[in-house]
Nucleic acid binder design. Structure first.
Length: 204
DNA sequence: GTGAAGATTAACT
DNA sequence: GTTAATCTTCACA
């Protein structure tokens, strides 16, 4: 593998991200996330994600227009990274979508490892391929994603997404995970996964 | 200033 | 199925 010359696909441009969260969820499933870090390059195909639909979604951190130091980046235009710490120990990554001031985002739940697998194994402390990126916290560890990437422009040279022409053989949907506090919004089928993938975080 | 909760994970029983 | 780990963020006073 040549560093800085990852040519598996075409980098997604700004336009790609300037759409509604549910539309983005369908379009982003199967795309490849790439992080070209100082330690090395890692890449994984998105096989599971959740859509968070902004001010009217009780599960969303921007519910009710909440705007804080943490959520500020959600109001930026699509194509930026929203990374936050959960339970004091794990980072989670979201892809901000839609236009400025419309805080929709895509929460990454699982990737299929594609590139830099040895580095992923080292970071995760396991050789089990299926467990490297199968979970929101796990994929951030494997990909080297932490809060230093908060607000990162996904149209830059560090962290980006690519389209290699892969089309999911099918898409399955279900309820989002661990947002019981969201009332009836917890029941919406806004979790999406590539049908048949062995790399999803849990049964849907 | 204080306290409670969390878009999780790994290791238990 | 249950629970501990661990700490930032946020709401409220």
């Amino acid at each position: 593998m040549e560093m800085g010359n990852f040519t598996r696909g075409q980098k997604l441009s700004r336009d790609f991200y300037l759409c509604d969260g549910l539309e983005a969820a369908g379009k982003l499933l199967g795309k490849i996330l790439v992080n070209d870090s100082p330690e090395g390059l890692t890449a994984g195909r998105i096989v599971e994600l959740e859509a968070y639909m902004g001010e009217n979604d009780r599960g969303c951190h921007a519910y009710g227009g909440r705007r804080t130091t943490r959520t500020e980046i959600m109001y930026a235009e699509g194509g930026h990274a929203y990374v936050y710490l959960i339970y004091g120990m794990y980072c989670c990554m979201n892809i901000i979508v839609n236009r400025e001031n419309i805080p929709h985002c895509i929460f990454l739940r699982a990737l299929e490892p594609v590139e830099g697998i040895e580095l992923m194994k080292r970071r995760r402390g396991t050789d089990n391929l299926r467990q490297l990126c199968s979970g929101p916290g796990r994929l951030c560890i494997a990909m080297g994603i932490d809060k230093s990437l908060y607000g990162e422009d996904l149209c830059g040279e560090c962290l980006w997404l690519e389209d290699d022409g892969f089309v999911p053989p099918g898409i399955i949907r279900g309820r989002r995970v661990n947002i019981d506090y969201a009332g009836e919004d917890a029941e919406r089928d806004w979790r999406f996964a590539v049908r048949g993938s062995h790399y999803i975080s849990s049964k849907i």
